[in-house]
């Protein structure tokens, strides 16, 4: 058959839903896929460990650690945040691999891309799910932290937490900036998890990055290592006001994180857009 000769009237094409509609549908499907997943449980439970550990330390040893008149809230929240900042990169690495792993394990990509939905909505919706779970985990951590502090105050009045107010402003600022400081990890790990179907390599790379970030904290260029982000944010945010030191709204390493995130997510999409999928 001569391909250049086409009948004058071809069947009309069905209308294509807009990108935002496709994105909404993709998001609704991805949210459903989270049911009973390790990613969801990890999100809900991840904040417990740093809070519980530091709650126990202060509950049992607080009387030895707090000097008379010292602000117990600051001690408790800064210790907990330190534990969290150490663990957070690892959490983000695991979370990203687990969310993408749901699709990898089901060999779901070929099914997704054979559906009437663009590649951009699919790519973005999963990214948004990871960003949402990351935000939820950090919010839950702060909520647990405050709840633990009030519980400590009630159970151990001799620590005098009731004489001080929780450092809400610092916690709020830390929360926002720490979230920013994890975005580079999300971007890099998302791309790695998508293009490396197994679970092992992305997690291994993430762990190597995590170790490198912690080990090279004193290096002048450590800000470029995404995995060092949460710890750098904590180090640049004093819990107690330091005379002459203004709290930065966004520190340089957090801008680098945004850059990492944008470049990784963008390159990941471009690769997805042009690459064969099976």
């Amino acid at each position: 058959m001569n391909p250049s000769v086409r009948p004058s009237s071809l069947p009309a094409l069905p209308p294509v839903p807009g990108v935002f509609v496709q994105f909404g549908r993709s998001l609704a499907a991805d949210a459903l896929k989270l049911r009973r997943t390790a990613a969801l449980w990890l999100t809900l439970a991840s904040g417990v460990l740093p809070v519980l550990l530091n709650f126990c330390i202060l509950y049992f040893k607080g009387h030895l650690m707090l000097k008379p008149g010292a602000d117990g809230w600051i001690k408790y929240t800064s210790m907990s945040w330190q534990t969290a900042a150490v663990l957070l990169p690892l959490f983000v690495v695991l979370l990203t691999s687990l969310v993408v792993g749901v699709e990898n394990k089901a060999e779901g990509w070929k099914h997704l891309f054979a559906l009437p939905v663009g590649r951009l909505p699919v790519w973005l919706s999963k990214l948004l799910i990871i960003l949402g779970l990351n935000a939820l985990a950090q919010l839950l951590f702060v909520a647990l932290l405050l709840a633990g502090g009030y519980l400590l105050q009630a159970l151990r009045p001799e620590l005098h937490l009731q004489q001080f107010a929780p450092p809400l402003r610092v916690l709020g600022l830390l929360l926002g900036r720490t979230y920013l400081a994890t975005l580079g990890i999300v971007g890099v790990q998302y791309v790695l998890s998508k293009w490396q179907q197994g679970f092992v390599l992305p997690v291994a790379v993430g762990m190597a990055g995590w170790v490198a970030g912690l080990t090279l904290l004193r290096w002048e260029h450590v800000g470029w290592i995404p995995y060092a982000g949460p710890m750098l944010t904590l180090l640049s945010t004093p819990f107690k006001p330091v005379p002459g030191m203004a709290l930065p709204t966004i520190a340089p390493h957090e801008w680098y994180q945004l850059l990492w995130f944008g470049v990784s997510a963008g390159l990941g999409y471009v690769t997805l857009r042009w690459r064969n999928l099976a």
Binding site: V16, V102, E107, G108, W109, H111, L112, A114, L115, P116
Partner: peptide, 17 residues
Amino acid sequence: VALLSRVGALIENPSLY
């Protein structure tokens, strides 16, 4: 996208969660 809305497919092993 428009054409695939009129197509149903099962490629090799079904993709199931």
